[in-house]
Amino acid sequence: MDISTQDAPVPPPAPAPSLEQKRASRGATRPGDRVFLGLSRGSGILLLVIMAAIAGFLTYRAALAISEDEANFLTSFEWDANGTPPKFGIAVLAYGTVISSVIAMVIAVPISVGIALFITHYAPRRLGGVISYVIDLLAAVPSIVYGLWGALVLVPHLNGLYGWLDDYLGWTGVFEWQGGAARSLFTVGILLAIMILPIVTNVSREVFRQSPQMIEEAALALGATRWEVIRMSVLPFGRSGVISASMLGLGRALGETMAVATVLSPSFLINASLLDPGGGTFAQNIASKFGEATPVGRDALIASGLVLFVITLLVNGAARAIIARRKEYSGANA
């Protein structure tokens, strides 16, 4: 930098900018700016093109498969996509995917919120840091490792819990247990819960940490206990953040492949009981069937992938709607 320019006299006020100068001020004429503009615009366009290409390809192949399908694609319980004529439906997969993810959410979200609150509002700073670090480690474990741990350690150790559930809740039918290996959608749900715990906890923790001090003090000064402070100011402030965190977790749970494929003993059946082995999820089914699929079979798997994609979109849309509905009362303008 030339230091002498600091002493340069102030230039007279510039006349109204010409068209040429306006273009210059938008940064499109200097070579560096032009290159950067081209790169960033190009990346943006490339992203859209890739998305469109994937969506187009998936829809095209899915349409091919569904047009050959001899069974009802949405309601059939069969998966014989390699046969002639091919017969397949996604009912079992949709059920298994949604149920296992719902179980995971029911278990993981309350625990995650609890851990996040403990780290931000109860634990001494140092202990909170240690817990955060351990949770970050948990997020770094590859999913296949979770799958192996699930199949070799979790499954054999769940017999006690399954027996207890059968004893006390077996009468509902939902928790009836025949006594087989615990390779059921319920176990998958537990494993998925452990897997999504770190992301839900981390995002919730960041949201709670930003909870405004002055609102917490307002509650304290009214004579609120620590839990009442959390209930009156921290949780309402963090509500939309926790919903976002849960959706991130749900996205992972819906699409999880290897861990589910390792633990579940799949079948094309919907059991009344969550504890009986069987069922399947979209991602697990694609992973285990793709290798030996015929061309039509592959298209059928692609079609099931499209359905998973649509489910994820719907879930995200619902979450956004929930957040938007409460916007007026959000802590954003605190």
Binding site: M214, E217, P236, Y329, A332
Partner: peptide, 10 residues
């Protein structure tokens, strides 16, 4: 308090 702090969610 110094700055008004009504509960924003209420």
């Amino acid at each position: 308090f110094q700055r008004p702090n009504p509960f924003p969610t209420m």
